[in-house]
Amino acid sequence: MKKFIAIFFLMLMAASVLTVPVYGLAITPESLQSRSAILINADDGQVLFEKSSNDKMAPASITKIMLLVLISEKMDRGEITLEQELTISENAAGMGGSQIYLEEGETQTVENMLKAISMRSANDASVAMAEFLFGSVEGCVKAMNDRARELGMNDTSFMNVTGLPDPNHLTTAHDIAVMTKELLKYDYVNKYMLTWMDSVYVGKEKDSEQVLVNTNRLINNYDGLLGGKTGFTNEAKYCLSAAARRNDTTLIAVVLGSDTTKIRFAEIQKLLNEGFANYKNIIFHSRGDVVTTVPVYCAKDESFNVVSKENIYYFTESNCKVEDFTLEYEIDENLKAPLGSEVPIGKAVLYKEGKVLGEYLLYPEKNIDKEGFFSFYLNNVLENIIK
């Protein structure tokens, strides 16, 4: 099919196509005290730094990131709401470790449970949500493992929803980064992850106030933090997964097996700082932005807007230049209405030095309806007669 081609000198990239070479950072695996660590670009999952990132280790409460993913997915599908209430079981109320001291038989809202999980890492709230979502903890654990397989977390095995010690409850820094990346697709828990202090009332009479102080101290001192999840058990030691965004660049850092809480926070900041200093995303079109306008036949209007359904960007080392890249829009010729907004009508192609780096489908901004005969007659035939 013939194409209408528009050429622009821009920088563009979709993550799944181009692998950007990773240049040396000022940190080395030997310079970190944590047993395992990783730094990735949150948009495409590209690994920028790693230290024993595929070693299977106990994740402690970082486990709850997957629980939050499942909760977010159900909220996104409209299956649950923040205002919904759940009844606390004996099993949930009896959970040890970090908790908000829920009572058997009391009712709580989904929102309060999300606060407790995100801020205090409450085990009783986690079990209550697992039972509410899937009927049982076992059902939720199965869903967590199934979702892990779907995400390619092949070195992860969840045995519970809390992260309490179990010799078979293991994952890796790499897999934690993957599920953190998945959680970033949603914003249902961002508010709570970034709240320093709040409280919930518990008990059948709601007469006991539980003050929640976020376990992630980066909230108060790291610019651009999007959220994170801490974890600690004697077996796992101190762990942390955190995401941050500056300008158009979003990074995820994970550290496992830190001897002190001070080390985990310091090394997460070191990883993120190095990433932001050496790499950047340049976004030329956000998802839904109009990228060009093209002519159309048999429609009320003579042209329509063309959009991309994904961010058009390029992830690169910080000194890369826009002029190094060429972007072409190849749009089908002689487009005629009707056109659906879900049917591609062309593509954008990225070149560098004559080499194709990526191709991205383009769509009409909205459905383009065919002009009716009467309207066509009035707008065209009569207009010509009058002239």
Rank of each mutant, 00 (worst) to 15 (best):
V306L: 08
E83V: 11
A143I: 01
K204G: 11
N380W: 14
V200P: 01
N379S: 15
Y314G: 00
K280S: 13
T63Y: 01
L350F: 05
A243R: 01
V306P: 05
I283Q: 01
I282P: 07
M193A: 11
E90N: 10
S303V: 06
N234I: 12
M113C: 10
C239M: 00
C239V: 02
R35Y: 13
K336N: 12
A348D: 03
N216V: 01
S31T: 08
L18A: 13
K181F: 10
E323R: 13
E323H: 11
G135I: 03
T109V: 08
F325G: 06
L184N: 04
M57D: 08
N154M: 10
H285L: 13
V290Q: 00
M1Y: 13
K387Q: 09
T250L: 12
Q46C: 05
N319R: 05
E79G: 08
V254Q: 02
M66L: 00
T233C: 02
T172A: 06
A177E: 03
M179H: 00
M197Q: 15
V254S: 04
D324F: 12
L183P: 00
M129I: 10
Y238C: 09
K237Q: 11
M159R: 15
I331V: 15
K206N: 03
M95C: 11
T250C: 11
Y192E: 04
F373V: 15
E79P: 07
D124V: 01
Y201T: 14
L32Y: 10
N216M: 06
M66S: 05
E383Y: 15
D146K: 07
T250G: 04
G45V: 04
V137P: 06
L12M: 12
I331P: 04
V69P: 13
Q269Y: 04
S61L: 06
V343Y: 12
K280F: 08
E182A: 15
P165C: 09
